[in-house]
């Protein structure tokens, strides 16, 4: 596991821990989440049974703006956008339609968008925020952790903040003092819970 500062799986059964480390690695790799995780500690006790995953996230500050994937060329009465990456084309068009109206936005081909009679500076257009990758981050992370956790553990308690997360799952009602255990696991990574 590269780029992850701390990654441990703790379990009373040594072999089980080894398998779960592999599973966690595979799932996070598949979902492309290793780049956002800074520290991760997983604790599983099949006797209780309980599954705890606590971690610290890397901060993702970059938002995608129009200028990142398009060249804005101002011309007389119109503005031509040359698109280099189509990934964010659809959300961009949606924003344009909303802001300027459909009649002012034209897309003659896949890589060109023309704005007619728009009262805005090219710089202004370039700075429009199209997407925020961190928005779906928590959704992806919850899905990945549900894949990692043993399947029968359907009673869950989750806390996801901007930089830390706690995911606790069990098939029985969670113990009232589960917070203590979570704190202990954070302490192992020299961190405090969110």
């Amino acid at each position: 596991m590269q780029a992850v500062e701390y990654f441990e799986v703790e379990c009373p059964e040594a072999l089980g821990a080894e398998y779960y480390k592999q599973i966690a690695n595979d799932v996070l790799l598949d979902h492309n989440l290793l780049r956002v995780i800074y520290k991760l500690h997983i604790f599983i006790d099949p006797k209780v049974p309980v599954f705890i995953a606590v971690g610290v996230l890397k901060r993702i500050t970059t938002v995608v703006r129009v200028g990142d994937f398009a060249n804005v060329n101002p011309q007389e009465g119109k503005m031509t956008l040359v698109i280099s990456d189509e990934t964010y084309l659809a959300p961009m068009l949606k924003i344009f339609w909303q802001r300027f109206g459909k009649e002012k936005v034209e897309q003659p081909d896949r890589f060109t968008v023309i704005l007619y009679g728009v009262a805005a500076e090219p710089k202004e257009i370039e700075d429009i925020v199209v997407a925020d990758p961190s928005e779906s981050l928590h959704k992806d992370l919850i899905y990945a952790l549900r894949c990692i956790a043993p399947e029968g553990f359907r009673l869950r308690s989750e806390v996801f903040t901007l930089d830390k997360f706690v995911f606790v799952a069990s098939e029985n009602t969670l113990a009232e003092d589960i917070g203590t255990l979570v704190r202990e696991k954070f302490a192992l990574m020299s961190e405090v819970p969110p």
Partner: peptide, 9 residues
């Protein structure tokens, strides 16, 4: 039978 990873379970 394909079971899981934990002896206890």
């Amino acid at each position: 039978y394909l079971l899981g990873n934990f002896e206890t379970c």
